[in-house]
Design a protein around this nucleic acid. Structure first.
Lengths: 121, 121
DNA sequence: TTCGTAATCAACCGAAAGGTTGAACAACCA
DNA sequence: TGGTTGTTCAACCTTTCGGTTGATTACGAA
C-alpha cells in the first residue's frame, strides 16, 4: 500500500499556479469567463504567450473552454482548485494532531495491528 | 483592490509542490521532523538530489531546519501551507457568489447550458 | 590526531519552461 | 469572394529544473 506522491495532474496543477501570470488569469476568471484576447489585455507579453499559459491551465484542468463562433471562452474549474486545498488539507490535519501530542488520528485510520498511517499525496 | 499575482514566495511554494518527490517529502514531514538521510531513504535518487529538493522547499519556506550535531533536521512549516489554501480560498468564495449571482457577464458569453458539475477526478 | 558520518558545494548535462516572431487556420462579415 | 478578427501552430532562443558525480566542509567518536 505504498502510495507515493506520483500524480501527474497534481504536478501540473501546482506547476500551473507557480506563475504569477497564470495566477492572475485565475483571479480574472473567478469573476467570470473570458476570451484569450480579454485575458491577454492586461499583460505586456504577446497573445501567443498568454495562449500558452491558458493551455498550461487547461492541461492541469484548472480551466475549461467552450466555443462561441471564433472565440474560445475560458472558464474556471473550481473543482480542481479544491483538489489542491484537499491535498494540502491532509497535512494540516495531521499537523494539528501532532500539536496535541497524540496520534489518535493515526490510530483511528490504521488497520488494527499495523502501524499504517494513510500516506496520501 | 488591484492585486496582480506578483508574489515570488507564492511562486516558489507552488513550484515546490509541483514535484512528486517534494510532495512525498512534505507527507513524510507531516509525521514529524527528519534528517536528509532519512528523507532520502525511500528514493532512488542520490542524497545530493534530495538535498536540493529540500533546499527548494526551504526557499519556499515550506520547511525549516534546525541543528543537531552534524545533522540538520527538517521541519514542516504548516503556516506556509495554509498560505496556499488561503490564496486558493479567495477564488472559491468568489465562485460561490457567482453560483447564486450568475450575472450578465456569464450570460453575455452565451453559455450553452453545459454547467460544470463537481468532478472530483 | 585520525576516522567515519551527515550534509553541502561545484561543475556539468539533458530536458523542459517561458518567451519571441511569423505564418496558418477558422469563423464571421461585407 | 475577400477582409477582419480570434486563436493557434511552428520554429527558435535563453533560462531554469532535476538529476548526476566528485570533492569538500562540519561535527563527533576513538
Amino acid at each position: 500500500m505504498k502510495s507515493n506522491g506520483d500524480d501527474p495532474l497534481l504536478d501540473r496543477a501546482f506547476l500551473a499556479l507557480a506563475d504569477p501570470a497564470r495566477r492572475q488569469i485565475i483571479a480574472r476568471l473567478s469573476r467570470g469567463p473570458a476570451t484569450v484576447n480579454e485575458l491577454a489585455e492586461p499583460f505586456e507579453m504577446s497573445k501567443q504567450a498568454v495562449s500558452k499559459h491558458i493551455q498550461v491551465l487547461e492541461q492541469a484542468q484548472l480551466v475549461t473552454r467552450s466555443r462561441d463562433a471564433q472565440r474560445r471562452p475560458v472558464h474556471l474549474n473550481p473543482a480542481r482548485l479544491e483538489a489542491l486545498t484537499a491535498w494540502i488539507g491532509q497535512y494540516r490535519l495531521v499537523r494539528e494532531e501532532q500539536f496535541r501530542g497524540l496520534d489518535a488520528v493515526l490510530r483511528s485510520q490504521a488497520a488494527p495491528g499495523g502501524r499504517q498511517a494513510k500516506d496520501p499525496s
